[in-house]
Computed example of a mutant assay.
Amino acid sequence: MELHQLRYFVAVADSGGFSKAARICFVAQPSLSQQIIKLEKELGQRLFERLGRTSVLTEAGRALLPRARLILKEAGDIKSGISDDLGSGAGQLSVGLIPTIAPYILPGVLKRFYESFPKARISVNENLTERLIKSIIGLEIELAVMSLPIEDKLIRMEPLFEDPLVLAISPVHELAKSEHVTIEDLRGIPFIALDEEHCLGEQINNFCYERQINPDIVCRTWNLSTIQHCVSFGSGVSLVPKMLVMTDVSNKCVYRPIKGQSPKRTVVAAWHRDRKLSKLAAEFIQIVKDEYAYLLETRSYEGSGNVSPIIANF
């Protein structure tokens, strides 16, 4: 019995299908299926009933699932625990970040991390929230930096900071003349939206919906960098996270805070509820907090395009 077989088994059980599990585990479906078959032969029990594209646990599968989770957890704890016991700062750390956070905070975080732990090695999985949660549950990564909401009961979280959203505008746009804009100003003007597969895209949509604002979405895209370029060319306006503003040195966009009840997202560190974080993971969490605080202190005015100074008062 191999650990990767148990990891594949848990992925199929959680996702309800072999195709989804293969995507989560980043393996070809035939390879995953073969490993499940080998596991079933070794145990002498059928673990899944295949009902079309859906796979349902058999009685034997239900009995194995909690044991498999425990074995994978212990395997992960052994790996991180040995590194901690060495006490030298050496060790392996696997983390995840969502794509609307990683580009803006990860470079500074890695620099700080390696200055403190030069012997450590870190692997980063930049992915969507749903996939990172699967990776946490499957013990493929130790923790992830994401934003709320996260509703999985197997996930434990620690709030890191609040990241406000600001309006990105072309320098020649009429709204660029104002130090503040209101949510009402979004009515009837072209809007560049982030795809709803991103939790940030969904959060922005919900914010507008709750205030009965239906932006005139002329383009929906996957990447915040694409949004910046479209905005700079005058194709529309958009809501973007402040951490993007604090790391923008292009001077191609103007950024304005939303007056009144401004939108924001809560960024958290998330990990498996049954897993004790390694010392490296705990240090990584603190470094993320420190890096965002540093950006707030040093980049609120600098490197943010034509930013209203009031943006620093969020």
Rank of each mutant, 00 (worst) to 15 (best):
L3V: 01
R7G: 06
G17Y: 02
I24N: 14
I24R: 14
C25M: 14
L32S: 12
L32H: 13
S33Q: 13
Q35L: 07
E42I: 03
Q45M: 09
Q45I: 00
R50W: 01
R53L: 08
T54F: 06
L57H: 05
E59D: 09
P66E: 05
P66R: 05
D77F: 03
I82G: 06
S88I: 03
I98D: 01
P99N: 06
L106R: 07
K111E: 13
K119D: 11
S123T: 15
V124K: 05
V124S: 08
L132T: 09
S135M: 04
I136L: 15
E142Q: 14
L143F: 00
L148R: 14
D152I: 00
M157Q: 13
E162H: 09
P164S: 07
L167R: 05
A176V: 01
E179Q: 08
V181C: 05
V181Y: 07
T182R: 12
G188D: 12
I192T: 08
E197R: 15
N205M: 13
F207I: 01
Y209I: 10
R220G: 14
T221M: 11
N223R: 11
F233A: 11
G236Q: 10
I258S: 10
I258Q: 08
R265M: 15
T266I: 13
V267P: 07
K276P: 03
E283N: 07
I285S: 10
K289I: 00
L296V: 11
E297A: 13
G303Y: 03
N306A: 07
